[in-house]
């Protein structure tokens, strides 16, 4: 199994983004990924705590030795809608 650092960073980022899109527990196309050494930092917003945690699990399965910094926020929507008047 490939470890972070064994391949160019660009490929690691691409593999992680592909895994986050393909895994049914994440299906996330909107997570940004940065890799430096053995660390992975993920940012963005998801809709549930479960999906936020699943991002770490997916990356952990792909790169078991990776140190994951999870900066993903869980989306909180304001209750009131926006209102726009159109003629």
């Amino acid at each position: 199994m490939t470890e972070l650092g064994d391949e160019p960073v660009e490929y690691s980022v691409a593999h992680i983004k592909e895994a986050l899109a393909a895994d049914p527990h994440t299906a996330e196309l909107h997570v940004e990924v940065q890799v430096k050494g053995s660390s992975v930092a993920v940012t963005g917003r998801v809709t549930t705590d479960e999906r936020r945690n699943a991002v770490e699990e997916v990356i952990g399965r792909l790169y078991p030795g990776a140190r994951i910094q999870n900066y993903i926020a869980v989306e909180v929507l304001d209750a009131d809608p926006t209102v726009e008047d159109l003629s």
């Binding site: 929507l77 009131d80 809608p81 926006t82 209102v83 008047d85 159109l86």
Partner: peptide, 15 residues
Amino acid sequence: QPVLGHPYALFRFHR
């Protein structure tokens, strides 16, 4: 929804 920051938007047409 992530763009709105709200669950939905309301559009009112005065016609």
